[in-house]
Amino acid sequence: MCLGIPMKVVSKKGDKAEVRSDKTARQIGIGLLKDIRVGDYVIVHAGFAIEKVDEKRAKETLDIIKEISL
């Protein structure tokens, strides 16, 4: 039920945006977030962006996993 997929914002207009994952695109609502920019990755759940993905932290998590599993 709580499936959410990271997708890239390719355009936006008002409280709607077009997001894309590879070649699949969909219009979603972005009313739950402020300051969404084209190029951002957002978590899409049931046709809405529920949060932005923080690129820096995403990388840090992977670095930590690499480190602790050494």
């Binding site: 039920m1 739950l32 759940h45 049931a46 046709g47």
Partner: peptide
């Protein structure tokens, strides 16, 4: 409208 806190805000909108 079913779902937990992930889904209910989308219904609220």
């Amino acid at each position: 409208a079913v779902g937990f806190e992930t889904t209910s805000p989308t219904v609220a909108l």
